[in-house]
């Protein structure tokens, strides 16, 4: 991927596999996912619900909810392997080296403590500062994330903030110890459109100023298009396509990405009908053999039914699709007639 440069990647995920043992057998929710993030880079991870994008993020920050577990692969942060660390070690890295922002700002904040106290505690956990210094830093952070009247807001409780302001506090909390990477899982989904734009602008500015890399997990292609440098499109637990955001958005190589882009209403032209991908993403229990997208794919061939494609170069991107292999998709096949 972007490893052509001499800089080692900040985050390196290799063949990550996340499993959920259930009584009906083991479900593979994330399957052979590899990508890296360079220092200061914003990688968007986009996909529909159940694609495994949030689980990938949770695996990186070490917060997979049991019974989910990492069943294979390695995660390296700044050259150090972090996927097999004991809980306490990982807890120190989380916060100090990796910050996390979740969809619902309310769940990230303790309702019983003032935001100032939460900031100070987090700062002092990770940095050797006195209480007074920590409070000064907390105040600076609140100002930085654009909370008006930060001095007086320091002693307010989470419920006294609006949704957008709360998300700003969460961002401040994630930035406390100056992490190198922020994993942001649907940070704007719960917010109104006008607030979304504010939060995205804030995230972009902070990353630019601090050189922090971001893994931005979202289902919203618009957010990705505006924010990310590169984007990984996930489908049924695997990466379908990964590449520079402009290439993926403008010249998608994987049929799924093409369909996804076409199904977003376009402000330029009013069409009677949107491009649609028939069917739905398979449940984890019913992932078809071969390429997981094949039952919904208009361009599939006989090879797609049996052989699972890995990421391969496709234009400026990489796509997991036999269309971009010299061997091709094999004998052409009609699309399965699924209930459209």
């Amino acid at each position: 991927m972007a490893t052509e440069s001499n800089n080692p990647p900040l985050l390196d995920v290799r063949n990550l596999r996340v499993e959920f043992p259930t009584r009906r057998g083991t479900l593979v929710a994330v399957d052979d996912v590899s990508f890296d993030i360079a220092p200061g880079e914003v990688l968007g991870v986009v996909g529909e619900s159940g694609a495994g994008k949030s689980l990938t993020g949770n695996a990186i920050i070490g917060l997979l909810e049991p019974p989910g577990r990492i069943a294979g692969g390695e995660i390296h942060l700044e050259g150090r392997r972090i996927d097999n660390l004991p809980y306490e070690e990982m807890r120190k890295i989380r916060g100090a080296r990796i910050g996390a922002i979740f969809q619902d700002p309310l769940t990230s904040l303790n309702p019983l403590y003032s935001v100032g106290r939460q900031l100070v505690e987090t700062i002092r956990t990770h940095l050797p500062l006195s209480a007074g210094e920590a409070r000064t830093r907390a105040l600076d952070l609140l100002k930085e994330v654009g909370i008006p009247g930060a001095e007086s807001r320091l002693d307010h409780y989470p419920h006294q903030f609006s949704g957008g302001m709360r998300q700003r506090v969460v961002i401040a909390l994630a930035l406390c110890a100056g992490p190198r990477l922020i994993v942001a899982d649907e940070p704007t989904t719960a917010l109104d459109v006008s607030i979304q734009a504010q939060i995205i602008a804030l995230l972009k500015r902070l990353c630019r100023e601090h050189g922090t890399a971001v893994m931005l997990v979202t289902h919203d292609m618009g957010v990705i298009a505006e924010t990310a440098d590169r984007v990984a499109v996930m489908y049924a637990g695997r990466i379908a396509e990964i590449g520079p955001v402009r290439d993926v958005v403008k010249h998608a190589r994987h049929p799924y990405t093409k369909g996804l882009m076409g199904s977003i209403p376009n402000l330029g032209v009013r069409t009677e009908r949107l491009t649609q991908i028939d069917g739905a993403m398979p449940r984890l229990t019913e992932i078809p053999a071969g390429c997981a997208f094949n039952p919904r794919c208009a361009e599939r061939g006989s090879r797609c039914l049996v052989e699972r494609p890995d990421l391969m170069p496709a234009g400026a991107d990489k796509a997991a699709c036999w269309l971009h292999d010299r061997g091709g998709v094999g004998r052409p096949l009609a699309k399965e007639t699924i209930d459209a």
């Binding site: 609006s162 957008g164 995205i200 602008a201 618009g222 298009a225 505006e226 958005v249």
Partner: peptide, 17 residues
């Protein structure tokens, strides 16, 4: 509205809630 076409149109986030 997010700029999916990446025309370089700047989203100017409006202040206030």
């Amino acid at each position: 509205i997010p700029d999916l076409d990446m025309t370089g149109r700047q989203r100017s986030p409006v202040a206030g809630e």
